[in-house]
Design a protein around this nucleic acid. Structure first.
Lengths: 249, 249
DNA sequence: ATATGTCGGTTGTCAGACAAGTCAAGCCGC
DNA sequence: GCGGCTTGACTTGTCTGACAACCGACATAT
């Protein structure tokens, strides 16, 4: 009867509700009112307490606005439809949300030793050699390149063999799917850089074009850098933003 | 006449707990464990449900880390303490923290009508006229210009007379000091742009230099745009970054 | 016309209980 | 002694039901 097989762990109620509520909000217009909490909780199949915790995360992100005694509303500025940087996600899902079809071009996977810059980015001392998996690719929308990405991951976390046959270039996706190691945050530095000859060619833009550059360190829970990535974005395709809190409430 | 907008009411339990818990966290070291929730709830004089909602906001901000069946811990990395973009602050305080002395150059204050772009940025669509206060300035470090900033504020929020004699150019500082209207968040868009002739001159850089461009809308609690600002930064002086959460816990 | 009271609906908070996960000590068979 | 298993204490996760605080609108009284 009761078997000892381990089922794939069901996503916790909270995460399920987070997805469901997020999807629901996406279908609503700014300023629109959500159903009352008891109704919503019943429809989503969770208790009101759990629902409220999920709602609070959306309030915290500025997606929802609550008014005591009145109701809960979709914030008028709807940052979720845009590309807030608060949550790390693959460029593919980000593009899909704003209705773009992406293709990977010039995918290049290799195992090699890290350069000094990469070693520094990965937080490794310089004493030993640092074998890494390097994934480079250009993202296209239609026929126009829009981004150039490079991920560098120590071989201790990911090797060439860990990438499935249908690997399309998203290292983050692979890391998330494995669930090992446990990831915490990404520290992403924001820079602007002129396109040199190499990037001008790869991204089909004139030399000297201003590119948005994101340099990210993805941390695991034990404070190690799992992934060091450098991305270049051609202006005009993606719109990144960040919500900044005003100090003192 | 007197617009009776929403204002901070008598502090609700949640806000009190938010303060108390925040103060408590500040006394703890990274990685340290918090007391169990029932204990904490009793000490703070609220129910566990309320405490958990407050805790979730801290988890959302990356200040706390929860582990099911184990406990709640102070995150080892406190994004707020870093000079990340999560918290809005004046460029002057940011510069001071990284040990730079700033000077304001070419300060220009005027009252005029908003341009169409500015009107859109302020969320004013079909208003007949949009009189605004415009503050433009260049920030220097030593003798080298590093940033070009422009703030545009509707005259309903701020007029020329509201700026004191010792006004040094920080509109945010004035707004915060007044406490009216109550500010909530700033939505800051991140772009890269080549310096045209005008900015090349103002910032003393070659034409075509890649500049980091931040376009920000500062919102009040009633979802109105109080301040629309456009900033250009010369690379190499300020380092902006943002902490991005990994989805799923 | 203005002020006041009431009422339904919604969010805010509460108390207690149980489920699920983690960890370590202890027990058992070998 | 040693490895594997069980047990139990402890913590976070979720559920249930209830009541309080608040808002908006309508009816009512002044």
């Amino acid at each position: 009867m009761s078997d000892t097989l381990s089922y794939p762990k069901a996503r916790s109620p909270r995460l399920q509700v987070e997805d469901a509520l997020g999807a629901m909000i996406a279908t609503l217009s700014p300023g629109e009112q959500l159903p009352p909490e008891p109704t919503l909780a019943r429809d989503l199949g969770v208790s009101r307490a759990t629902l409220r915790e999920v709602m609070r995360t959306f309030v915290e992100r500025g997606v929802l606005v609550r008014r005591h005694g009145v109701g809960t509303f979709v914030a008028s500025r709807m940052p979720v439809m845009d590309n807030g940087l608060e949550v790390l996600e693959t460029l593919e899902t980000l593009a899909r949300r704003i209705g773009l079809d992406t293709a990977v071009q010039a995918l290049e996977v290799e195992e090699r030793l890290a350069t000094p810059i990469e070693r520094a980015g990965l937080g490794l001392q310089e004493e030993a050699s640092a074998p890494v998996l390097s994934v480079t690719r250009v993202i296209n929308v239609g026929d126009t390149p829009v981004a150039d990405l490079r991920d560098v991951v120590p071989l201790t976390y990911l090797t060439c063999d860990d990438l499935g046959a249908e690997f399309r270039g998203s290292v983050l996706e692979v890391l998330l799917q494995r669930g090992e190691p446990l990831l915490s945050v990404s520290r992403t530095e924001i820079l602007a850089e002129s396109a040199d000859a190499k990037f001008a060619r790869r991204l089909s833009v004139p030399r000297g074009t201003a590119l948005l550059k994101l340099v990210a360190q993805l941390y695991s829970y034990d404070e190690k850098v799992v992934d060091f990535s450098v991305s270049y974005f051609v202006p005009g395709h993606f719109r990144f933003h960040v919500m900044r809190k005003v100090p003192g409430q």
